[in-house]
Amino acid sequence: MRVAQLGSGTPEIAVVAGVHGDEPCGVRAVKRLLDERPTVERPVKLVVVNEAALERQVRFVDEDLNRAFPGDSHAKTHEGRLAHELIEELEGCLSFSMHSTQSHAEPFAIVNELSETATELVPQLPVATMVETSNFAEGRLFSEVDTIEVECGLQGTETAAQNADRLTRAFLTAVGALPGDTVARDLPVYRLTDVIRKERADTYEVFVENFAEVEPGDPFAAADGDTQVAQEPFYPVLMSPNGYRNVFGYAAEKVDVLTPSPAAD
């Protein structure tokens, strides 16, 4: 794990990249900040986490780090020990953690709950939607540390790297670390309601788009040609044929649209 800092003093803000070794977009955003060394109005901690997985260009070495928290200093797995170390490093910080996905090109945010921090900051980020994990946060970083996660775009793409840089600077502006203003926007909010599992198969297909409502009776996925049909309406989230080993993705409900307060006269 590599840790650096912008500004002097004790940071209460952290930017986290490289939780997964096959998602380099956030690492590039952190590197650019370190190369430019912008003047900050609040100190910022910068963390590149899973260096071993990044070097191998794999998601993880022993287990998924973002399912391994809180971890243990004596864990048998590399990620189990790393999870414990990262939590100690991020103590007292609001963290901004960057990821990428195989399922959706447009950036969106993921939070543990619709906290005051999330509802204040996320609409100021250049994201299309916000997803609350509800009962599906076990083992993730934000189950232990106050964290806003962002999916920056499609894994391995130049666009995801550019989005990561843009998202990071918007976050740092929103929390007052970088000077300037942000633009708040209407933001749809979804809550995960179920896991969409998939059986072991040679081929997988997904027939729906993420965040587009699926109606009862609509086919939404197939494993070796065996089609799954919706029994009730839902919104797909992180749905892709091969993004996860045992699941297609998640079902969600749309719970709100956050609207910026009108500016004072």
Score class of each variant (00 low, 15 high):
residue 1 M to F: 10
residue 14 A to D: 11
residue 14 A to N: 12
residue 21 G to Y: 12
residue 22 D to H: 14
residue 23 E to G: 09
residue 29 A to I: 08
residue 29 A to V: 06
residue 33 L to V: 07
residue 33 L to M: 12
residue 38 P to F: 10
residue 39 T to H: 12
residue 43 P to E: 11
residue 44 V to K: 09
residue 45 K to Y: 05
residue 48 V to Y: 07
residue 50 N to H: 05
residue 55 E to S: 14
residue 57 Q to N: 15
residue 58 V to H: 11
residue 59 R to V: 06
residue 60 F to R: 04
residue 61 V to K: 02
residue 61 V to N: 05
residue 62 D to H: 12
residue 62 D to M: 07
residue 63 E to I: 07
residue 64 D to E: 06
residue 66 N to M: 01
residue 66 N to P: 02
residue 71 G to I: 10
residue 73 S to E: 14
residue 76 K to V: 13
residue 77 T to Y: 02
residue 78 H to P: 02
residue 80 G to C: 02
residue 81 R to H: 05
residue 82 L to H: 06
residue 84 H to Q: 01
residue 87 I to S: 09
residue 87 I to K: 12
residue 90 L to G: 08
residue 91 E to H: 09
residue 94 L to H: 08
residue 96 F to V: 00
residue 96 F to M: 01
residue 102 Q to M: 13
residue 106 E to M: 06
residue 107 P to N: 01
residue 108 F to G: 11
residue 108 F to V: 10
residue 108 F to S: 09
residue 109 A to E: 07
residue 113 E to D: 14
residue 114 L to D: 12
residue 114 L to C: 09
residue 114 L to R: 09
residue 117 T to I: 13
residue 123 P to Q: 08
residue 123 P to S: 07
residue 124 Q to N: 08
residue 128 A to D: 13
residue 137 A to K: 09
residue 138 E to A: 15
residue 139 G to R: 12
residue 139 G to N: 11
residue 142 F to Y: 15
residue 147 T to G: 04
residue 151 E to S: 06
residue 151 E to F: 07
residue 154 L to R: 08
residue 154 L to E: 08
residue 158 E to A: 14
residue 160 A to G: 09
residue 162 Q to R: 15
residue 167 L to R: 09
residue 169 R to S: 05
residue 171 F to G: 02
residue 174 A to H: 03
residue 174 A to N: 05
residue 178 L to F: 14
residue 179 P to V: 11
residue 182 T to Q: 11
residue 182 T to I: 08
residue 182 T to D: 03
residue 185 R to F: 00
residue 186 D to F: 05
residue 188 P to A: 06
residue 192 L to V: 12
residue 193 T to C: 05
residue 194 D to F: 06
residue 198 K to C: 00
residue 201 A to E: 06
residue 203 T to C: 04
residue 203 T to H: 14
residue 203 T to V: 13
residue 206 V to H: 04
residue 206 V to S: 01
residue 206 V to L: 04
residue 207 F to D: 04
residue 208 V to A: 00
residue 210 N to S: 04
residue 211 F to L: 11
residue 212 A to P: 00
residue 220 F to H: 10
residue 221 A to L: 05
residue 223 A to T: 09
residue 224 D to Y: 03
residue 226 D to H: 13
residue 226 D to P: 00
residue 231 Q to R: 13
residue 233 P to S: 14
residue 236 P to D: 09
residue 242 N to K: 05
residue 244 Y to T: 01
residue 245 R to V: 08
residue 251 A to R: 08
residue 254 K to M: 07
residue 261 S to E: 15
residue 264 A to K: 08
